[in-house]
Design a protein around this nucleic acid. Structure first.
Lengths: 181, 181
DNA sequence: TATTGTTATACTCTATAACTATA
DNA sequence: TATAGTTATAGAGTATAACAATA
C-alpha cells in the first residue's frame, strides 16, 4: 500500500455523506500533481517502493522458471547447505516452520527437492533432486539477468555502495529481533 | 519470507517419508552457520530484509499513535493535498480503490479524517478533522524519531547517498508500471 | 519435558469483478 | 458510455496454538 504509479483526475461528494455540510473544500490539488511531503524523505517509504518494484521485476524475469522469491531462496539455501532440516532452513530465511511445510510441499510436488531420512527421526534432511539442480542452473542465469536489470541506472561502484549502505542499515535493526544472525 | 533471524539445531528423517531410501545425507551443515550463497549478493533479498526491519521499527515507534504505515501515508497525503478524491489518494499511494474504502473507513471511524461533499457528486473531497491534525503533529514528531533510529548506523552523507541510490534505482522500475509518476 | 514436523485457523494485504449513482 | 465509490470475494503471506512422533 505504498507504491507510486500516476495521478488521478478530479474531486467532488456523493450519497452516504456522513459529515454535516462542510463548505465544499476548495480542492486546490485538482489541478496539478500530488505533494508527497515528508513521504519523499521517509526511508521506509522509499524502501517499500524499491522492494515492490524489484519484486515486480523479479516476477517478469523469473516467470519462465515459475518460482517465487521465497521458493527461490529455499532452493538456494538447500543447494549451498544440503541436509539441513526444515526448521534450520525456515529459521535461516525467517519463515515460520508452520508456513514452510506447504512451501516445501510445492517444491517436492514439482520434483525439485525432497525430504530425506536423517539421523534424528523427528526431522528430514532436505536435499535437491536432479531436476532441482537443473532448475538452479537456470535460476543462477536468471538471477544475473535480474540483478543486471535492476542495476541498470547504477554504476558498479554505486551498486556496491548501495549494498554496503543497506547492510549497514540492516545490522543493528536485525539484532533486537529474536536471537541474531 | 525473506528475513534472517538466527540458526536452528540439528537434522534427521521421520514418518511421512516420500522418497525411497536416500543414504542418510551427510548433513555437513549441521555444525556451523548457514551459507547464504548468492542471496547475500541479491539486491532484492537485501531490500526485502531492510524493508521488513524498518517496518518493525516503525511499529514499535508508532505504537502510541496506533497507525499503520499505510494509514500514516494517507493522512500525510491529505494533509498536504486537502480535497483530493479517494481515487486520487489511492492512485498516488498505489492502493487499489477497492481496498482504500475500508482503510479510510477506519480513519473516519476514529475521527481523524472525513469525506466532504465535492462538486462532482460521485466523489468526496477528503479532509482532515481537528483530531486528525492533532494526531499529525504527533506523527511528524514520531517520524523524526523513527528516521533517526533507523539512520543510526549511517552518517548524514551516507543517509543522503542511500536516498539518492534508492531513488536512482526506483526511477526506471516505476516507469513501466501503469502510467508514470 | 523439549523439539520437529504438521494441521488448523485467523488476520492482513492485495487483486478482480460487478454493482450504484452519478457524469 | 465512462467514472467514483462500493461490495464481495479470492488469493497470497504471515502469525499462533495445538497435536503426534521422537528425543
Amino acid at each position: 500500500m505504498l507504491n507510486r504509479p500516476g495521478q488521478a483526475r478530479l474531486p467532488g461528494p456523493r450519497r452516504k455523506s456522513s459529515i454535516p455540510a462542510a463548505e465544499a473544500v476548495a480542492a486546490q490539488a485538482a489541478t496539478g500533481k500530488v505533494d508527497y511531503g515528508r513521504l519523499d524523505d521517509s526511508l521506509g517509504y522509499v524502501l517499500r517502493r524499491a522492494q515492490l518494484a524489484v519484486f515486480k521485476t523479479f516476477q517478469s524475469t523469473f516467470k519462465s522458471a515459475d518460482v517465487t522469491p521465497a521458493q527461490c531462496s529455499v532452493l538456494l539455501i538447500i543447494e549451498k547447505n544440503p541436509g539441513l532440516t526444515q526448521t534450520q532452513v525456515s529459521d535461516a530465511l525467517g519463515i515460520k516452520r508452520a508456513n514452510f511445510v506447504a512451501l516445501f510441499d510445492t517444491l517436492e510436488a514439482r520434483g525439485l527437492a525432497q525430504r530425506a531420512p536423517a539421523s534424528d527421526r523427528r526431522s528430514y534432511a532436505l536435499q535437491l533432486t536432479p531436476r532441482g539442480r537443473a532448475l538452479l542452473r537456470k535460476i543462477h542465469t536468471l538471477s544475473e539477468v535480474h540483478e543486471d536489470r535492476i542495476s541498470v541506472p547504477l554504476t558498479k561502484p554505486e551498486r556496491t555502495e548501495l549494498f554496503r549502505l543497506l547492510n549497514l542499515l540492516l545490522a543493528p535493526l536485525e539484532q533486537g529481533d529474536d536471537d541474531g544472525a
